[in-house]
Amino acid sequence: MGNIRITKQFTFETGHALYGYDGKCRNVHGHSYKLSVTVIGKPITDTSHVKLGMVIDFGDLKTIVKEEIVNPFDHATVFNKNTPHVELAKELMDRGHKVILADYQPTSENMVIDFASKITARLPKNIKLHSLRLRETETAFAEWYATDN
């Protein structure tokens, strides 16, 4: 039996600011992100297996993505920890706000690379991450493909 790709979509609200950027996005602002996660593998053919015919249970994929991406990033503000934004982050955290200090500039491009690494580490060995699409707005998104990496 051949490989099959399956996709699950997720949404979350996240704020960020791009330190040193020369446009509006240097200001703290937020997005309603839409993340599409596509994995590839062979459907289970063992007739005694409870997940017969599935590549991966959508519920299992949902658990991985929620734990690694959605729960931490939803209603958080992401800053590059290697910038002066760390001072603002500390003040927000002291006031009880949810803040992520990333090792990178929190662009959609860098976020999708981070997400690919986190999801890949959690997938069963027989399932591979095929692609991610992180939609920042209705007209702008970043994509990650395993074949490009």
Score class of each variant (00 low, 15 high):
residue 2 G to L: 12
residue 3 N to E: 15
residue 4 I to N: 02
residue 4 I to M: 12
residue 5 R to T: 14
residue 7 T to K: 14
residue 10 F to K: 07
residue 12 F to M: 08
residue 16 H to Y: 15
residue 18 L to H: 11
residue 21 Y to W: 13
residue 22 D to S: 11
residue 22 D to N: 12
residue 24 K to D: 14
residue 24 K to I: 08
residue 25 C to D: 11
residue 27 N to V: 01
residue 29 H to W: 05
residue 31 H to W: 05
residue 32 S to Q: 07
residue 34 K to S: 05
residue 34 K to C: 06
residue 38 T to G: 04
residue 41 G to H: 09
residue 42 K to M: 13
residue 43 P to A: 05
residue 48 S to G: 02
residue 50 V to T: 07
residue 51 K to W: 08
residue 51 K to Y: 13
residue 54 M to C: 02
residue 58 F to I: 04
residue 59 G to C: 03
residue 60 D to T: 01
residue 61 L to M: 06
residue 62 K to I: 01
residue 62 K to L: 02
residue 63 T to A: 12
residue 66 K to M: 13
residue 68 E to W: 00
residue 68 E to P: 01
residue 69 I to F: 07
residue 70 V to H: 03
residue 71 N to K: 11
residue 72 P to A: 05
residue 72 P to F: 02
residue 80 N to E: 11
residue 83 T to Q: 10
residue 84 P to Y: 12
residue 88 L to G: 03
residue 90 K to R: 14
residue 93 M to E: 15
residue 96 G to H: 11
residue 97 H to K: 15
residue 101 L to F: 01
residue 102 A to G: 11
residue 104 Y to M: 13
residue 104 Y to W: 11
residue 105 Q to D: 14
residue 105 Q to A: 09
residue 107 T to N: 07
residue 108 S to R: 01
residue 110 N to W: 08
residue 120 T to E: 15
residue 122 R to Y: 00
residue 124 P to L: 07
residue 125 K to S: 14
residue 125 K to N: 13
residue 126 N to T: 13
residue 127 I to D: 09
residue 127 I to R: 05
residue 132 L to C: 06
residue 135 R to L: 09
residue 138 E to F: 03
residue 139 T to K: 14
residue 139 T to H: 11
residue 142 A to I: 02
residue 142 A to Y: 03
residue 144 W to L: 02
residue 148 D to T: 10
residue 148 D to P: 00
residue 149 N to W: 14
